[in-house]
């Protein structure tokens, strides 16, 4: 089977974030985040709740608006320019904690809606690619069902297929396993691992330490709107530099 793999990119660094600040009214959620991601890198972002990690990746495709600093994705600066916003959203795929499938559309319609309307593919082509992805995430037989008829794990895999069919250059995962029952986490993690190994650029916010250890190129630890530590997974888990990281790891690992 032929897959349309990750779209090629001709830049050295696909995501550049410089000094990103974000306020919710008075509360400063991001306090100057800097991050550079190379194509094909897999980055896992960890941190306690409320540390701004979700806000950060939501800023990258403009679900939240950052107020200071700059974000450049695939050479396009994320500004108020509506063309850039649309362009970046097309190139950055996002998978949500709550799946956010469209309940009134079938699985296939869910997946093909955006390619047909945004990428201007023909319906046949879109359905063909959609079926390939559904097969790859392991649920081709569910194509004509409604999301409500699927289990949580299946729904999340559909959401991934929906994102991947758009052929994004960057994949972002926002705690994709947190809303799942324990026995369904594995099926989703398997797909994520598979994607990581096929060369996708991935930014994942997750609490799955195993995943981070196994596939991440880099682990980023955020706290209070800042990046506290940036390290390779081995170093991060076995030999953290910062006190805050040690505390976090001890709380996560010994409970």
């Amino acid at each position: 089977m032929k897959f349309e793999g990750p779209a090629a990119s001709f830049v050295d660094e696909i995501i550049i974030c410089e000094n990103v600040h974000k306020w919710f009214d008075e509360f400063e959620a991001l306090r100057g985040v800097d991050l550079r991601v190379k194509p094909g890198e897999v980055i896992v972002i960890l941190g306690p709740s409320g540390s701004g990690k979700s806000t950060f990746i939501r800023c990258i495709n403009r679900l939240e608006e950052h107020q200071e600093g700059r974000i450049i994705v695939d050479g396009i600066e994320l500004s108020h320019d509506i063309r850039n916003i649309q362009e970046i959203r097309r190139e950055v795929g996002m998978v949500f904690q709550q799946f956010n499938l469209f309940p009134h559309l079938t699985v296939l319609e869910n997946i093909t809606l955006a390619p047909i309307n945004v990428r201007k593919w023909t319906r046949d082509h879109a359905e063909e690619v959609a079926m390939q992805w559904l097969t790859r995430v392991g649920i081709p037989e569910q194509a004509n069902k409604y999301p409500g008829q699927l289990s949580g794990g299946q729904q999340q895999r559909v959401a991934m297929a929906r994102t991947l069919t758009m052929q994004p250059k960057v994949l972002m995962f926002d705690e994709p396993t947190s809303a799942l029952d324990p026995e369904m986490i594995k099926e989703v993690l398997d797909v994520m691992r598979d994607l990581a190994h096929s060369g996708y650029t991935i930014l994942a916010v997750t609490h799955e330490m195993g995943f981070a250890r196994e596939v991440a190129n880099r682990v980023i630890f955020m706290d209070a709107g800042k990046i506290v530590e940036e390290n390779t997974p081995d170093e991060f888990f076995n030999n953290p530099k910062e006190e805050r990281t040690k505390l976090f790891l001890s709380q996560i690992l010994h409970h």
Partner: peptide
Amino acid sequence: MEQTAPAPPQEPEAISFWRTIVNYLFDVR
């Protein structure tokens, strides 16, 4: 918008005046 870091290499060095105007036309605000 405040600019604290040097422009990344991908950025075209100089933007023409007309280009700026056109960019403003597409500004969501």
